[in-house]
Design a protein around this nucleic acid. Structure first.
Length: 601
RNA sequence: GGUCCAGUAGCUCAGCUGGAUAGAGCAGCAGCCUUCUAAGCUGCGGGUCACAGGUUCGAAUCCUGUCUGGAUCACCA
């Protein structure tokens, strides 16, 4: 089925004229939005198809007749429509090649084609990544980072001012676990002394804590305790809780240890972000926002929108909204995840007054965001409406969820290493890049491997869970990032060999194009609409799928039709321009996915 | 148990604001490099769109129910 495009100019034009046609022919008012236009299926002649079934109620005539009447009206009143044919209730419209050609030459030399200039509306905030500082990044984080970064770029391309923010979860019981384990069993180990990346080193101690804690639980249970009793009384967990309290009381030694270990982690994260090609405009630290959150909670208590239980813990009652009671402060006074998120939201809103605050967070936290919005509203902040949880699906293994306990978590650094190696092996096998310098080769392996990885992740609808099979390496052929890169490199190769465009060549348009040429023209024409659709739906997958279609179409064109051997100079120049423009679109589209394109590969 | 999400080819995914005979890629098979990069192109095989009802001129798409899988309902984040 033909993919729907988000009303481009020509569609708006046709829909408008169709409204006129219905008015003239049948004397009734219809809304332009109700006009159903789609791309014509390839087996029929035409470019756009108007489905007239819904209009037959108004025309009170058979579908074919209605289609013909409207078709005649459009052909007479819209010079862009060259001819039409009718099959059942489908009105297939042939758009004049010149319409697309005009657009093509008008935009041919615009490097930012498809991007809208930044408007002066309020900014949009996009939060993504938001790692805990107790373990290294894994494949799930990669999806988060890529989605967040790409969505931000897509919004920019739609003319939005965007602020990319990261919220580092640098405090909480989870950090204390790593700290405790390091204190006990670390013997002063550092990234330098161990040769480990800081985030991996901390991760090691987090795992160690968990293992020891499990041992304690098992022992307590063999001595007759229930699960719950054991969990409450395991000494390690008690110590972790004590440490958290010390931390919140700003105990000097605890803070010192905390700072040191977090620094190790940040250094490790920075390396991974850099390699992934991800950046932020602003980084928030939970340790700096949770106090504001606590204050908000206290205010809520004063205003009696929150309540305190006998054990001193503080809660929000959300039962009237169909949810449960939600804990906001523990009985020992320390804060929880929700507490700091309240503070962070307030801080950000005060700082940017963003028209939208988009949180890129996994769908496992849907409930958290429902609660967050509700509590904020209870506290009297109407802007909570502007919070949008971009919830994406999990990355799963063929056998199910990744589990750190079973060691099935796919580490981000390892995966990027693998992609690099695969790119290297593939390139060497193909044996085409023999005249590259070592530096050029390194760069190629880097961007080719990353392209495969990024495209693999981003081509899937963010909302959906996706499957990654570690036993099969990510493909470089077919519907992949490297395929698209290859198409770009091919184009650049042609352009390097092409003669320079003569002066005034833009005025010499071909009279008519071949079908393959027209398909390319149409796809290029559609790019701005694809960017808009991706922006409206916050879905990089729209860009990925669009670009694949374009690359595939170009390769067919390239295969079937000669560019440089063409004897007619006008046709030859046109085809060179077509290749060039296709290259620009591929480059701009891939940029929105964070994928670099190579001049050669 | 409550709430939410998903189920499309052997595998990974498009298509889902209703439109024509449901599409790609991978994997399999068969072709195409003395011609602009074969990370490419062409062809073949492959489907009860989980199931059952309903709405409609028309349903993979909307509604209801069932089944299956997942998430969540923590003094974890």
């Amino acid at each position: 089925m033909p993919s729907k495009i988000n009303s481009s100019m020509i569609e708006t034009l046709i829909a408008g004229k169709t409204v006129d046609a219905v008015q003239k022919l049948y004397g009734q008012e219809v809304k332009p939005e109700s006009i159903s236009l789609q791309k014509t299926r390839p087996e029929f002649e035409g470019d756009l198809t108007l489905t007239v079934f819904p209009l037959t109620k108004i025309s009170r005539k058979a579908p074919e007749l209605t289609a013909n009447e409207i078709g005649n009206y459009l052909a007479e009143n819209l010079p862009e429509i060259k001819r039409f044919n009718v099959i059942k209730g489908f009105l297939n419209l042939v758009i004049d090649d010149n319409y697309y050609l005009r657009h093509f030459y008008q935009n041919l030399n615009i490097p930012n084609y498809g991007y809208t200039k930044e408007g002066d509306s309020k900014p949009v905030m996009v939060e993504y990544s938001s790692p805990n500082t107790n373990k290294p990044l894994h494949l799930g984080h990669i999806r988060n980072n890529l989605l967040g970064w790409s969505v931000a770029e897509i919004l920019k391309a739609n003319g939005k001012k965007v602020i990319k923010v990261n919220l580092v979860n640098d405090r909480g019981i989870h950090i204390c676990k790593s700290m405790l384990a390091w204190q006990r069993w670390g013997n002063g180990e550092t990234p330098e002394s161990s040769g480990m990346k800081g985030d991996h080193l901390i991760g090691k101690y987090y795992v160690m804590f968990d293992q020891e804690y499990k041992k304690q639980l098992a022992e307590l249970k063999t001595s007759g305790m229930s699960d719950e009793e054991a969990a409450n009384q395991a000494p390690l967990m008690g110590e972790a809780r004590e440490m958290l309290q010390k931390w919140e009381k700003q105990d000097a030694e605890t803070i010192r240890l905390w700072k040191m270990m977090n620094e190790w982690v940040y250094k490790g994260f920075d390396e991974t972000y850099k390699r992934l090609g991800i950046d932020f405009d602003k980084i928030y630290y939970e340790s700096q926002t949770y106090l504001l959150g606590k204050k908000l909670v206290e205010n809520g208590l004063k205003d009696q929108v929150l309540f305190r239980k006998d054990d001193d813990s503080v809660w929000a009652d959300l039962t009237s909204d169909g949810l449960d009671e939600k804990l906001l402060l523990r009985s020992d006074g320390t804060s929880v995840y929700m507490t700091q998120d309240l503070g962070t939201a307030k801080l950000r809103y005060d700082e940017f007054e963003a028209e939208k605050m988009i949180y890129v967070v996994g769908n496992e936290q849907n409930y958290h965001f429902d609660v967050l919005k509700l509590v904020l509203k209870k506290l009297g902040y109407d802007w909570a409406e502007n919070i949008l949880h971009l919830n994406y699906g999990m990355v799963e293994l063929p056998e199910g969820k990744m589990k750190s306990r079973e060691g099935t978590v796919v580490d981000a650094d390892d995966l990027m290493d693998e992609m690099y190696t695969t790119a290297k092996e593939t390139t060497e096998q193909l044996g085409k890049s023999t005249d590259f310098t070592p530096g050029e080769l390194d760069h190629l392996y880097h961007i080719a491997g990353l392209a495969a990885l990024k495209y693999f992740i981003l081509k899937v609808d963010p909302k959906k869970n996706m499957v990654f099979n570690p036993k099969e390496s990510i493909d470089f052929n077919g519907n992949t990032g490297t395929f698209i890169q290859y198409t770009y490199a091919r184009i650049q190769s042609v352009l390097r060999k092409a003669p320079p465009m003569p002066q005034g060549a833009n005025n010499e348009k071909p009279v008519a194009c071949l079908p393959k040429e027209k398909e390319l023209l149409k796809l290029i024409y559609d790019f701005p609409a694809a960017v808009k659709l991706a922006g409206d739906t916050l879905s990089p997958a729209q860009i990925a799928n669009y670009t694949f279609d374009l690359a595939k179409e170009f390769n067919q064109f390239y295969h079937d039709i000669t560019i440089l051997q063409e004897e007619d100079p006008i046709k030859k120049q046109f085809r060179i321009a077509l290749a060039k423009f296709t290259g620009t679109v591929i480059k701009n589209a891939m940029h929105l996915l964070g994928i670099e394109v190579p001049e050669r590969m």
